[in-house]
Each structure stands twice: as structure tokens, then as C-alpha cells.
């Protein structure tokens, strides 16, 4: 009897202790940050990873150190997705961008937490996430409007109907901004895909967390696989492949490193990629959005057709 009592009481003591222990020591489930290619979340084929740390030296996560081959796979996925994405009704692209905003709104808390981990204050993080959502909505609205703004029916002197319209350039390689790891990322992706292009994005090297979580948002937003592909890794390692790949039509770089800019200009001459440098853009302001960003990855196509000119009726019938 007493034995049992002792047992019981010792159990209750240990139970209490155990409870305390578990509540303070519950093993956190760490997130594996994988890359995003063709609507799937593979690990890098290279099996490599790196460990970005924040200012206090706290380890953020094990993040894929993507390779040239991952990039090549991503280009294949982006090229494969280009035909159907560019041929979709602009209205439909608009709906999907809006859906992305909805999904991002629903996961706000997670992004704020990640931004704080990556050394942002709470207030700043909230502001950045809100801005990223609003920016998606801004470009959702442009999807079926910028064409009207930048098209023209040209009054040629001969008897022809002639018009010029923007068309997406194709596959775009994007080096996302290193700071503004969410709002900058969204600000460079949105105009590219709003215009019907597909892209491969290299996330901020030092602050990659939001990029992969954003890929999860994309994955649940009706955005077809392959339209946006997101890699994590070293800019210095991957950038040369981004700008020399022969099936990439355009490249975007957001930093101001002159040597890198020069390298991009030289190497992209290989197949005359259209290159845009956004080193002076402040993504967290109004100047970080405009339809002219969409036009940076558009081509102008001009179409001619004769107008029959045979009947006797003049213009004043």
C-alpha cells in the first residue's frame, strides 16, 4: 500500500517534472528548404547544402546549394511551361496572380516569422509582407491592361492594316535582390510572369527562407508548374550559367556590383539576351512597381496585312 503510495507520489512528482520537461523541450520540427523546379520540390541534384546565418550568427536552415544542372533542369521546365503560360488568356493570368496574393495573405504569419529570423524587426517584417501581397495584386491588375497601353495601330501610308503588340520574351533568368528577400523577390517575379514569360529565380543568397516558402504559395495558387522555378545557392557560382544558357532569352540582375554587371553584359551577348539591371530600384517604395518593368521582358511584334482596295465605293458612301 505504502509502496504504491510512494510510487504514486514519486510518479506524480516525476510526471510533473516530465510535463515541464516536455513543454520546455518539445522537439521543434525543422523545415527542410528544398528548391522548386517544374512545380516539384526536389533537393538539389548535387546533394550539397549551405547554412546561411543571421547577424547574430544563428543558423537559419540547411539550404540547397543548387548546381548548374539544377539550373538546366529549371530551364527545361520553364521552356516547357512557356507555350501554355504565354498563350493563356491575359485575364486568366490575372486571376492566378490574384490567387497568389490570396495565398500569401493566408500565410502572412509564417513569412513574418521567417523575416524576423533573418534579422528584421517585427514592424518591418509586417510591412514587407503586406507590400509583397499588394504588389502581387498590383501586377494581377496589369496582366490584361499593359498590352493596350503599349500597343499601337500604325497608320502606314500604304493600303495595309498594321499593328504592334507586346509579346513575352520567353524564359527569363532572374537573380533576385539580396535584401528585401520577400518584397524584392515578388517585385521581380511578378512583372515577368504577368507579361506571360516563365522564369528561373535565384533567391537571395543570405536570406533564402522566404523564397522557398513563397514557392509553396505558388504551388498552391493554380500557377502552372514551371512558370516560376526557384533555386537557392551561390550567386557567384550560378550567375555565369544563368547568362550563358542558350535557351534563356532574358536576364535580370538587381545588385550594383560593376564587375558582375560587366560579366553579365559580356556573357549574355552569346545569344543576345535582353538584360535589365535594377540596382537602383527601391523595392519597398512605389518606384518598385510599374508597367515599364513588365515591358522589360516584352518584345514588340508588328503584323501587316493588305487591305483590299478594289471596289468603286469611296470613303464617303
Amino acid at each position: 500500500m505504502s509502496k504504491t503510495e510512494i510510487k504514486k507520489s514519486s510518479l506524480s512528482i516525476s510526471e510533473n517534472g516530465l510535463e515541464k520537461k516536455i513543454s520546455s523541450k518539445r522537439l521543434e520540427v525543422l523545415k527542410t528548404y528544398k528548391i522548386y523546379i517544374g512545380g516539384q520540390f526536389p533537393r538539389t541534384e548535387s546533394g550539397r547544402y549551405y547554412v546561411p546565418v543571421n547577424a547574430e550568427g544563428k543558423k537559419l536552415a540547411n539550404v540547397c546549394l543548387s548546381s548548374r544542372k539544377d539550373f538546366r533542369d529549371a530551364v527545361v521546365a520553364a521552356r516547357g511551361a512557356f507555350g501554355s503560360w504565354s498563350n493563356r488568356a491575359a485575364f486568366n493570368r490575372s486571376q492566378i496572380l490574384y490567387r497568389m496574393a490570396e495565398m500569401l495573405e493566408g500565410r502572412k504569419a509564417q513569412f513574418i516569422e521567417e523575416l524576423i529570423q533573418q534579422e528584421s524587426s517585427k514592424a518591418k517584417a509586417v510591412k514587407e509582407v503586406n507590400l509583397a501581397i499588394d504588389r502581387l495584386i498590383y501586377y494581377a491588375g496589369w496582366c490584361d491592361k499593359f498590352q493596350q497601353l503599349f500597343s499601337a495601330v500604325n497608320p502606314v501610308a500604304s493600303s495595309h492594316f498594321n499593328f504592334s503588340v507586346p509579346e513575352p520574351t520567353g524564359v527569363v533568368a532572374v537573380i533576385a535582390p539580396q535584401s528585401d528577400s520577400l518584397s524584392g523577390l515578388v517585385s521581380v517575379i511578378a512583372p515577368v510572369i504577368a507579361g506571360g514569360n516563365t522564369c528561373i529565380v535565384l533567391a537571395s543568397e543570405t536570406k533564402p527562407l522566404c523564397s522557398i516558402t513563397f514557392a509553396e504559395v505558388l504551388n498552391s495558387s493554380d500557377l502552372p508548374g514551371g512558370v516560376v522555378n526557384i533555386l537557392t545557392g551561390k550567386v557567384a557560382e550560378l550567375l555565369p550559367w544563368f547568362v550563358t544558357h542558350m535557351d534563356v532569352n532574358a536576364a535580370i540582375y538587381c545588385e550594383s556590383d560593376l564587375e558582375t554587371i560587366k560579366m553579365i553584359q559580356e556573357k549574355s551577348a552569346l545569344n543576345l539576351k535582353r538584360i535589365s539591371f535594377y540596382d537602383k530600384v527601391k523595392w519597398n517604395t512605389e518606384e518598385g512597381q510599374s508597367p515599364y518593368f513588365i515591358m522589360d521582358t516584352q518584345e514588340i511584334k508588328t503584323t501587316w496585312h493588305p487591305i483590299e482596295n478594289v471596289a468603286g465605293a469611296g470613303g464617303s458612301y
Partner: peptide, 15 residues
């Protein structure tokens, strides 16, 4: 530049 049922047409107002 795409010409439909014509070819090699140019005009100052046509990009």
C-alpha cells in the same frame, strides 16, 4: 515583323 499575304513592306510609323 510578320507579313501576312504581303512581304517586305516598311513604313516610318511601323516598328
Amino acid at each position: 515583323v510578320i507579313w501576312a499575304n504581303t512581304f517586305n513592306k516598311f513604313d516610318p510609323s511601323s516598328p
